[in-house]
């Protein structure tokens, strides 16, 4: 399962990348790490990932718009929004555009692994 990590924070990207290697998430291959929505879309078109972890507030192109365009390109893509809880309406907008789940920052290791497990569960 191909995973694309989208977040403007290098620390968060590294942390998600480390956790994606957890034994509870078998066959999770990281195909890219993007710092903003625009970069994420380029990687998305190239790699056609199955799963995306999506930050919402990012420079250049935000998570909601990136989510909308990714779903338009590949309807069965699984998108987990990972963002601060302070902006519930934006998170709801991302879900309306086709994201499947939401995990708020800050999160524990277990919370992220469980959320990824849940979001890819058929």
């Amino acid at each position: 399962m191909k995973l694309l990590i989208v977040d403007d924070s290098n620390v968060i990207r590294q942390r998600i990348a480390r956790l994606a290697a957890d034994a509870r998430l078998p066959n999770m291959d990281i195909v890219g790490q993007a710092r903003n929505g625009a970069e994420a879309l380029l990687m998305f078109q190239r790699e056609k990932p199955d799963v995306v972890t999506m930050d919402l507030t990012m420079p250049e192109l935000g998570g909601v718009e990136a989510t909308e365009q990714m779903v338009a390109l590949k309807n069965d893509v699984v998108i987990l929004v990972v963002s601060a809880l302070s902006d519930k309406p934006t998170a709801l907008r991302a879900l309306k555009k086709g994201a499947q789940g939401f995990l708020y920052k800050p999160f524990t290791d277990d919370q992220l692994v469980t959320a990824l497990q849940e979001v890819v569960r058929p």
């Binding site: 987990l80 519930k88 879900l95 309306k96 939401f102």
Partner: peptide, 23 residues
């Protein structure tokens, strides 16, 4: 308005119920 969005999402099939409680 947010409640309307949230309820609509739950009636849809796409979102995972357990991953949107916090919203």
């Amino acid at each position: 308005e947010a409640a309307r969005d949230y309820v609509e999402l739950l009636f849809g099939k796409r979102v995972k119920e357990s991953l949107v409680y916090s919203l």
